[in-house]
């Protein structure tokens, strides 16, 4: 019996799913083998992306397959004029067609590779701004209430107490006129 779980703990597609898939493809072959041919050949970059992207969420697959489909769809629509297998072969035999489909898929790869660093940089800037703001608040508290605020919290909670208290030095007794 086949185990329902893979080694990395992910649930593998069940037999019924496989059967459903096989059934759909069979129906597709019977009714429109030309579109299946274009789709199968056109969506190869997405299949590659599926195997390359080992993450759980498969964001690369989303990016590549989406744009890959955008590149394939216009040629699928051409079959509305001539829905024959030879027309499909003619379309896919054109280098320009292949170039467009693969370029679209490449654009998907480009999106997947270029957007995360931008977002990361953006989030880092936001975080650093927040830390700076929090440290300013702490400085204000220490300035107003003294270093004992840090010491008590530090001793109680095991915090680091390296925040500088600019006014910790005793200010002495008030000047009293004689």
């Amino acid at each position: 019996m086949v185990s329902p779980f893979t080694l990395n703990g992910k649930k593998a597609p069940s037999l019924i799913t496989w059967m459903w898939g096989a059934g759909l493809i069979t129906i597709w072959v019977l009714f429109s083998p030309s579109s299946l041919l274009i789709f199968a050949l056109g969506m190869l970059p997405s299949l590659v992306a599926f195997f390359i992207d080992r993450t759980d969420h498969k964001y690369a697959v989303y990016c590549v397959s989406g744009l890959n489909f955008c590149g394939t769809l216009p040629f699928l629509l051409k079959l509305t004029a001539d829905h024959s297998l030879s027309a499909a072969m003619e379309i896919m035999g054109d280098v320009f067609t292949i170039a467009i489909i693969f370029a679209a898929a490449g654009f998907g790869w480009m999106l997947f590779l270029s957007i995360p660093p931008v977002i990361t940089a953006f989030l880092t800037v936001i975080t650093e701004t927040r830390v700076k703001s929090l440290k300013t608040i702490q400085q204000r508290i220490v300035h107003e209430w003294g270093g004992s605020v840090i010491e008590e919290n530090g001793s109680n909670k095991g915090m680091h107490t390296d925040v500088e208290d600019p006014t910790e030095a005793n200010e002495g007794t008030p000047a009293v006129p004689e």
Partner: peptide
């Protein structure tokens, strides 16, 4: 990075 990837996926 994950947020970036999500953004890219959504954008796609």
């Amino acid at each position: 990075e994950r947020a970036g990837q999500q953004t890219a996926a959504v954008f796609s």
